[in-house]
Design a protein around this nucleic acid. Structure first.
Lengths: 363, 363
DNA sequence: TTGTACGCGTTATCAG
DNA sequence: CTGATAACGCGTACAA
């Protein structure tokens, strides 16, 4: 029952296997009555063509690989990633592809990974990575596997097609918001140095300060690692400074949990003693008290755009450069001390593209 | 270059393709000098056998599918799931299998999903689901696909092999802890009704109350949905009660974020005005102030055990019942008002199995 | 130790 | 509209 082949179905239905194949693939040139009979047999036996055999002759799997950096298992626990994946999945399904998240990267050596790629399990790959050290992109290229990346490294521009946000501009807007509220002593929590966006967000912070004529103070920059624990540790240090900050910009929301804890532990409060802007807009942070002002990334859309790019590449052989930068949004809540409506952040002119214009119409 | 077949490699190396195949699969009976020469050609051309062709003849993919309930996209954002997956991945990799997380379930109709299963993409499936309505397990059985489940439904005992924790006992221990601290008005936050563990945890709560002679009070049970928002809403109601609770047991940690917020908003504090025990031991909750007392599940290990069960089933054709219950741990921190060492929770006698004994030795 | 020939289950081509 | 037949790339008895 489980070993049925197309041949068996053909015999049972009293036709040739060519006809069954035609029914299976919705091809024309099958008499309706025959089609129905064959379909009935297929259904009643729960037959489905064996993928491997089909792939062998079709030279296509209609499977899309989703890949994360090898050291990024924590990403699974990151809602941002889940959102991006959701966007990808939606587009893939709509166009008849099946996305598969490749999950064993960190338990596998490079050679094995490379073989997996060359084994043509996937027609193409969606790579989610802002990790500078990650070799995934290089291996994908080496393996001749079509891919589109979410995230990119401006200093290593080998990815032909990617989707990202303008982290510099996003961070700048966040810090400008604090400056507009009158803050001058503004601390910044960085992420891990290996991640490209860490440097971009720091740059945005510097730009905002510079534009306002506020001197950059090394003592106000904390070397975070994306976790709440690092937010906690650095905030304690900041608060111990002779001239402590009155505001803080965190490179992600998760660290803010630690920041808030450190502030409360001192008997201080947010936003009066420390105004905070985060980055990511995680669902959970809605519940931080007070609600967090933060930067929202268009995650679902990044995933959708990346998938569209990839599938276009696969189906129409588009291989031209396509580097899409999507706009972020500053979500203003309570952690900076007042409320107003959300403000859209437009990406800077130099990164504007045709694709981007589409984007703005859509949003 | 990308289209090289085993035949090409053979020609280049000046041998037959049988010999290349032998080298590829590490078989004996190849002269070392020949083996080296062939290997060199393979490496220099970056050749790897095409998975589909190999699968067709081997009748095995060495791919393991990881599947979540169709409505559980939010699980990606759940660190618990990430841990379970990590355990699975580790074991799979170690035994030469590649785990693939099937990610597009909610964008796919049942028929398509069924075809995917029958297409024999995977040798077996690891299903992570405590969802009562989820049809995955039934479809897996219908498709004749070997699977092992993490989580189970005691009222629908059709899963031959599963790994789970004793949610009743775990919840009971959590509530007993509160009772031991002198609390009599203990609120409980439930999860979604569709999840089996929701009912089990409620049952544990009832048992602990009953054992202490505390009457069950419907008004103290909140219908949560696992999110912080529901924790927030219910806690406000609890605090408005004529006789508000002095302690609260939450079915997961995520909801606690909302609970803490509601408490602080009233100018009250944890643990003096409300003692809290959570469930899951998420990394993030370490940063809740004060640190959360909670129940830890052995996630990585659940994943490992499930993977072992599945691979044994595939390789040794083991199809006997194997229902493994792993012990949980009460992690005592600050949210109940005092500190002491962690206490192990042994599973109840009726669920003890040989496998379980292994477990206890291991821990 | 190495090479030859066949089959795995499917789709595509071409003849009827 | 339908049915033979030839690939697809690889593993493996079996022959050399």
């Amino acid at each position: 029952m489980s070993q049925l082949t197309i041949e068996d179905i053909a015999r049972i239905a009293g036709v040739s296997r060519s006809t069954v194949s035609r029914v299976l693939n919705g091809q024309p040139n099958v008499r309706p009555s025959v089609r129905d009979r064959v379909q009935e047999v297929i259904n009643s036996y729960g037959y489905a063509p064996q993928a491997a055999a089909r792939q062998l002759v079709m030279r296509k799997t209609r499977l899309i690989g989703l890949i994360l950096p090898d050291n990024a298992h924590h990403l699974f626990g990151n809602p941002i990633f889940a959102e991006i994946a959701r966007g990808m999945s939606q587009v893939c399904a709509q166009r008849g592809y099946t996305p598969m998240l490749f999950i064993g990267r960190q338990d596998m050596d490079e050679a094995t990974f490379f073989s997996l790629l060359r084994g043509r399990h996937f027609d193409g790959v969606l790579l989610i990575s802002s990790d500078r050290q990650d070799r995934s992109a290089a291996m994908l290229r080496e393996a001749g596997m079509p891919y589109v990346r979410v995230g990119h490294d401006p200093e290593d521009d080998q990815d032909l097609q990617y989707v990202d946000v303008d982290n510099v501009a996003a961070a700048r807007v966040a810090v400008e918001h604090l400056i507009a509220l009158g803050h001058r002593r503004i601390a910044m929590l960085k992420g891990l140095a290996k991640d490209v966006c860490t440097h971009a967000r720091l740059e945005g912070y510097r730009q905002a300060l510079a534009a306002a004529g506020i001197p950059f103070d090394e003592a106000l920059v904390g070397d975070g690692d994306w976790t709440p624990a690092s937010g906690y540790a650095w905030t304690r240090r900041f608060l111990d400074l002779p001239e402590p900050p009155t505001a803080l910009f965190s490179s992600n929301d998760m660290m803010v949990a630690g920041v808030v804890r450190a502030v409360q532990e001192r008997g201080l409060n947010v936003p009066d003693d420390l105004a905070i802007v985060g980055f990511d807009d995680l669902l959970q942070t809605t519940m931080i008290f007070p609600e967090l002002t933060t930067i929202r990334q268009p995650c679902v859309e990044m995933g959708m755009r990346a998938a569209e790019l990839l599938l276009d590449q696969l189906e129409h052989n588009r291989r031209e450069r396509a580097q899409i930068i999507l706009p972020t949004t500053l979500i203003i809540r309570e952690s900076c001390g007042y409320r107003r409506r959300s403000a859209h952040l437009s990406p800077p002119a130099e990164s504007a593209t045709a694709a981007l214009d589409d984007e703005q119409r859509a949003s």
